[in-house]
Amino acid sequence: MMKAATLQLETLTCPSCAAKIEGALKSLNGVDQGSIKVLFNSSKVKLNFDADTIALDDITQAITKMGYIVEKSVVK
């Protein structure tokens, strides 16, 4: 089942952070690649994912592993 997630990250300060996070998310199985939006100024990530293949926790983990804190996440 496809779900839409919005993740609020700590403040992003370099545009290359956005590129890095996007890269990390693209490598995840179950995330709809075309839906990934890393909003640099509002420090948010929006994406659609298949809840049967991947859990929100795995997505949060992938971002945390890159060194960015996920402050809040909402799934719809």
Binding site: K20, K26, M66
Partner: peptide, 16 residues
């Protein structure tokens, strides 16, 4: 260096 390594892991050549 850590930031550079993380970037390279996802195939991004960053300023780092």
């Amino acid at each position: 260096a850590i930031q550079a390594y993380q970037a390279l892991k996802v195939k991004v050549v960053s300023i780092d």
